[in-house]
Each structure stands twice: as structure tokens, then as C-alpha cells.
């Protein structure tokens, strides 16, 4: 199963995706910053939940985001070998 990149609950208020730091097909490391999201109180960086390859992006710059929303998928290294 690919690892989902999920939007955390940031405590209400509007949230918007700012930028992705990786493109589909790129290898990412667990803990590496992956997505930047903006709120009116802080900027947050969502980190990669696993080491592997970013395979899908489901949200894009300027998209409004909801808690729990699926932002993308990572195919873990262990599943590739």
C-alpha cells in the first residue's frame, strides 16, 4: 500500500497549499519537507511520512485544504524491492 500524505488538523481556519518541494517520480526521504501550506497564523511544512518515491499529487498550489485530505502518495522503498 502506498503511504498517504494527509493534511493534518491545524485547528480550524482557512488553509491553502503553497508549494510542493518534490515532483511525482522523485525520491523523498522520511522527515524531509514535502509540502508547504499557508494559514493566516503560520506557515507549515508537511514532511514526508516515509522514504520512497512520490507517485501522486492530489492537491496543487492555491488549493484550499481540509483536515484529513489526501495530498499525495509515496511508494515506500521496501515495497519497491
Amino acid at each position: 500500500m502506498p503511504k498517504p500524505i494527509q493534511m493534518p488538523d491545524l485547528g480550524g481556519g482557512p488553509v491553502r497549499l503553497s508549494i510542493w518541494y518534490a515532483e511525482p517520480g522523485e525520491r523523498v526521504l522520511e522527515g524531509e519537507r514535502l509540502v508547504e501550506v499557508l494559514t493566516d497564523r503560520a506557515t507549515f511544512e508537511i514532511v514526508a511520512p516515509a522514504t520512497g518515491t512520490l507517485t501522486e499529487k492530489y492537491a496543487f498550489p492555491n488549493d484550499p485544504l481540509q483536515p484529513g485530505q489526501l495530498l499525495g502518495l509515496i511508494l515506500e522503498d521496501t515495497l519497491l524491492s
Partner: peptide
Amino acid sequence: PLLAEAPQRRLPDWLKKPLPRG
């Protein structure tokens, strides 16, 4: 998108936080 409610401006760089894993 609900443009009227969405954050429009970028905050200073120091108001950036990494989000925890898990």
C-alpha cells in the same frame, strides 16, 4: 475555493513550523 476566507498573504519566514510525522 472560498477566496474570501483563504489566507492571501505570506507571513514572515520565521513564522514557519514543521509539522510532526505520524
